[in-house]
């Protein structure tokens, strides 16, 4: 009689315990797999464009587009199926003759500014760009006042 069988015969509860653990382990491994689709990635999700210059443009653009499934990653970074589908859109649109900014505009039109990581000066963001300038100006004025006071 093998060692395992004799242990099971002597401690039947142990075998049940082991099976429970095996089942639990399967659940942990199985659950995320069940939440994924079983289709292959879109044609241009992982395939680079043949034209190296166009691929470089695609790569630069993809690094500044947000993955909507995994919101702190760019679509260039992410292996989520949806990020792959977005890369496919970027590459096929560039291949069709769109400029990178046209592709960005196409996504922003659908998802709003949130989808783009590229900082832009517009009606809602200009204070972010103006404030540092104002602070530096203020500092210069104060500094001049102090230096003058010291000379006097």
């Amino acid at each position: 009689m093998s060692g395992f069988a004799s242990i099971v015969r002597r401690f039947p509860a142990l075998a049940g315990f082991a099976m429970l653990w095996a089942a639990l382990a399967l659940c942990v491994v199985g659950a995320p797999a069940a939440a994924q689709d079983s289709l292959p990635p879109a044609p241009y999700a992982y395939r680079q464009l043949d034209d190296p210059e166009l691929e470089a443009q695609a790569k630069a653009l993809m690094a500044t587009l947000r993955c909507l499934k995994c919101q702190s990653q760019s679509i260039d970074d992410s292996d989520a199926p949806m990020a792959g589908d977005m890369r496919h859109q970027v590459r096929t649109r560039l291949l069709a003759g769109d400029t990178p900014e046209e592709v960005r505009a196409w996504l922003v039109e659908r998802y709003g500014d949130y989808v783009s990581y590229k900082p832009e000066v517009k009606s809602t963001t200009w204070p972010l760009f103006v404030m540092p300038l104002l602070i530096v100006l203020l500092a210069l004025v104060i500094l001049r006042g102090r230096l003058k006071a010291r000379k006097a």
Binding site: L68, K69, M82, D85, M86, H88, Y111
Partner: peptide
Amino acid sequence: DDISSVQLELGSSG
């Protein structure tokens, strides 16, 4: 929709 194209057209993210 095998490549989420309509989902992306709609501005849907999940």
